[in-house]
Write a protein that binds this DNA or RNA. Structure first.
Length: 337
RNA sequence: AGCAUGCUAG
């Protein structure tokens, strides 16, 4: 994020020394801004590029599609796809997965799926990533049958599913509370010779937590470590939150202690889940301790953590304490959403 | 490869 300014300096330096900027260079800048969520500047760089008389290549077009899709501008994205074709570039798998994801994020999954079929029919190469984007969209809609159908489709068309394909589906089963389905899918991934990474384990942990099977979740954590996969912050947060939702403040606190000792270091989400756990257990004393521990370890509270504290107090029938938490939040310049 | 797809809190 903070490095984009430096990147721009380097590019200005290049220009000053008479280096011609090419599509490659502009592409790096555009995707850099895109990743910071700075669409206006990403598009600004694209404009500079055109003014400099540099032609967009396929990767630059794909970056533009990403920027447009991330800012809800799918009509412009489709117009850009047309421009891309007119410039003589066939859509690539990056193009397609980017557009499908754009449609998914903008609540137009079916349009994305239609586009995928159209481009497939015209011979656009389709990779696992394209299917993954589509499966993710279906998973978000709870359409597991169709998502699983796409996995079959991959097999039939000779596209090998990758780890993300399976992780996406495991997450889908997790969301639908289907622990059996999640495990079966996870094992299918392993049977296919794909090694689970932290995200794959994370999705499986989510399935356990969602199903309320916390002992199973702990066992999965141990399997993950035995397999040499370092528990990610993501995965640990899933577990802490799983205990929190069960109202088991003690187990949640235990995990957080372990994280403080052996890592990964707890972050604001970890502590927020712990605060919720304490609140649900009716122990506001511990909730406040958790909140203070967070601050003492240099983790800045955000709106979510204050809200968790506030709700705990409200739930415990201490409106004046809730109000105090609210005022403290405002004093820190945070606005409730 | 300068570009795309998966798991976490109120």
């Amino acid at each position: 994020a903070g490095r984009m300014g430096r990147a721009l300096e380097v590019v200005r330096d290049m220009e000053a020394h008479g280096c011609a900027l090419n599509a490659h260079t502009f592409g790096m800048l555009i995707s850099g801004f895109a990743r910071c969520g700075d669409a206006p500047r990403a598009l600004g760089v694209a404009e500079d590029m055109r003014r400099a008389g540099v032609r967009e290549d396929a990767a630059v077009f794909n970056c533009l599609l990403h920027v447009l899709g991330s800012s809800g501008r799918m009509e412009e994205a489709m117009a850009t796809l047309q421009r891309m074709r007119l410039a003589g570039h066939r859509p690539t798998p990056h193009t397609l997965s980017t557009l499908v994801t754009g449609f998914v994020r903008n609540g137009a999954l079916e349009q994305g799926l239609r586009l995928m079929e159209e481009l497939r029919a015209e011979g656009c190469p389709v990779t696992a990533a394209v299917f993954n984007a589509a499966m993710h969209g279906l998973v978000l809609q709870g359409q597991m049958e169709r998502a699983a159908g796409l996995l079959e489709d991959m097999a039939q068309t000779g596209v090998a599913p990758d780890r993300r394909s399976f992780t996406t589906l495991v997450d889908g089963y997790a969301r639908s509370g289907d622990l059996e389905g999640a495990f079966e899918c996870f094992r299918r991934m392993q049977a296919g010779g794909l090694e689970a990474d932290a995200a794959a384990y994370g999705a499986l942990l989510k399935a356990c937590c969602k199903a309320g099977r916390m002992q199973t979740a702990q066992a999965v954590l141990e399997q993950m470590q035995a397999a040499g996969v370092a528990p990610s912050l993501h995965a640990m947060n899933t577990l802490v939150d799983g205990w929190a939702r069960r109202g088991d403040m003690w187990e949640a606190a235990q995990l957080v202690q372990r994280m403080r000792g052996a890592g990964p270091a707890p972050d604001v989400r970890t502590y927020t889940s712990l605060i919720i756990a304490c609140g649900r257990a009716g122990d506001m004393q511990r909730a406040v301790e958790a909140f203070e521990e967070m601050q003492q370890s240099g983790v800045a509270p955000n709106v979510q953590s204050y809200t968790a504290l506030l709700q705990g107090w409200a739930w415990a029938s201490y409106p004046e304490k809730a109000l105090q938490a609210y005022q403290e939040m405002r004093a820190h310049g945070l606005q409730p959403d």
